[in-house]
């Protein structure tokens, strides 16, 4: 079966670049900033596939390029080069060949995104239910009561009392805000979910409950997910396969068990031993 997402040589830089960028940046050079021209090579040609119903972990420290990678997939940032083919109900779609309106449609109906910072994923000027409604309204749903019903359902599904749906996300705890983000992401039944450090900064017990929710939703709905984190525990619990990134470069990828038990790259070995 075709993968739901096939990413080839995705590249993101900030700056004009020079001929030496390739040699002077990356994991071996231990920097993502080219000393010759000052260009930041955030992602230097990432390739991977995501199968239907699979959770792919992307692990790395800050500055490794892992967040840039998912932001490109959600069209928050544009790549410099490379391709990503999304399997849209059997039709292969070259994501970066689409125009802005087509990208927006894909983003609103087929993808869901959960950010580390709830302020990026939610509009705090409107109610929790309004945040979910926005995604439904983007998707041409125009029946007020049906929108309310769907928002109520999604909030309860993600563990928030429906009675609180008309409150502002301001009044929610960090863990609840992440739940609202997840509910919003799920509003249009997207097959693909992108999660960027969703549990970072939360209490350990809250983290565990959010991870349980993600796993449970994935199993119940058959979602495909890309999970970005610096936390080995999150990788261990969620990801079937894992990508390890350093200084903009993918240094290792494979089955999560294999990577955790028998890391090949020196950097991965260092990460794994540090986590033990």
């Amino acid at each position: 079966m075709k993968p739901i997402l096939d990413v080839r040589n995705l590249r993101k830089t900030f700056g004009d670049g020079c001929e030496q960028c390739g040699r002077l940046t990356g994991a071996a050079a231990a920097t993502n900033r080219c000393p010759a021209c000052g260009t930041i090579v955030a992602v230097r040609g990432a390739s991977f596939t995501l199968r239907h119903g699979e959770i792919l972990g992307v692990m790395g420290e800050s500055g490794s390029g892992k967040s840039s990678l998912v932001r490109m997939l959600y069209f928050d940032e544009a790549p410099v080069s490379g391709s990503a083919v999304f399997d849209d109900k059997g039709t292969p779609v070259e994501m970066f060949a689409l125009n802005a309106a087509q990208q927006r449609r894909l983003r609103n109906t087929r993808f869901g995104m959960v950010y580390q910072n709830a302020h990026m994923g939610l509009n705090f000027g409107i109610s929790a239910g309004g945040n979910i409604a926005e995604r439904l309204l983007l998707n041409e749903q125009a029946h007020y009561e049906k929108i309310r019903e769907r928002a109520r359902y999604l909030l309860e599904r993600t563990g928030i009392a429906a009675a609180r749906m008309d409150e502002s996300p301001h009044r929610f705890s960090g863990g609840m805000q992440q739940r609202v983000q997840i509910a919003r992401a799920l509003a249009t039944d997207p097959p693909l979910l992108l999660l960027d450090e969703v549990t970072t900064g939360l209490d350990v017990s809250v983290q565990a409950r959010i991870l349980d929710l993600i796993l449970e939703l994935q199993e119940a709905l058959g979602l495909s997910m890309v999970v970005v984190t610096h936390d080995m525990g999150v990788i261990r619990q969620l990801a079937t396969r894992t990508l390890v990134m350093k200084n903009g470069e993918v240094v290792e990828q494979g089955l999560t068990d294999q990577i955790l038990e028998d890391p090949q790259h020196a950097y991965t070995q260092q990460l794994v031993s540090a986590a033990l």
């Binding site: 109610s127 239910g129 309004g130 409604a133 926005e134 309204l137 983007l138 929108i147």
Partner: peptide
């Protein structure tokens, strides 16, 4: 201008939704 070009009026509709809520 871009929102008009794409016919993207969801945020206006959210305003109506929030009116009904409040």
């Amino acid at each position: 201008k871009q929102m008009h070009g794409e016919g993207d009026y969801a945020r206006l509709l959210v305003k109506l939704y929030e009116d009904l809520v409040n």
